[in-house]
């Protein structure tokens, strides 16, 4: 079973992502801050991570900068409610970070899931054509 790390400081949002992915047969791992998530990454190696940007303490960008060297095979998808946010250029260049930004509320969870799978395939050097 693929595992997915959900990082969002708002519990209801975190749960809605987790519930969706659970139904889609993923194993959700919840974290309410970047610091908690980094702790989790010491023991877990999730296939994907849905990362909120505005977080208490360390923000989502810095989290990814710290996390991807630890788990280079994890696909990172940024999901934010901030309208002016843009993916920083240094993260855009990282292959395991999706350049497609998801804005909350995510009305089409299926699209988010597709992007996650596409990014995972990218990391593994697989063709994306069949998506």
């Amino acid at each position: 079973m693929k595992s997915i790390l959900i990082i969002d400081d708002e519990q209801a949002v975190r749960d809605s992502f987790a519930d969706y992915f659970e139904d889609r047969l993923w194993l959700p791992i919840r974290a309410e801050s970047a610091e908690d998530a980094l702790d989790l990454l010491e023991t877990e190696s999730p296939d994907a991570a849905v990362v909120d940007v505005r977080l208490p303490g360390m923000d989502g960008n810095d989290f990814i900068r710290k996390a991807y060297p630890l788990n280079p095979e994890t696909a990172f998808i940024i999901c934010t409610g901030s309208p002016e946010y843009l993916v920083p250029p240094d993260l855009m260049e990282v292959p395991c970070v999706s350049d497609r930004l998801f804005k909350k509320p995510v009305t089409r969870m299926d699209n988010l899931e597709k992007e996650i799978i596409r990014t995972i395939r990218n990391i593994h050097g697989k063709e994306v054509a069949d998506e």
């Binding site: 209801a12 992502f17 409610g81 901030s82 804005k103 909350k104 509320p105 969870m109």
Partner: peptide
Amino acid sequence: NNPLASMMQTAG
């Protein structure tokens, strides 16, 4: 957007 996300995503 955050509470909206809770509401809509949960409803979804």
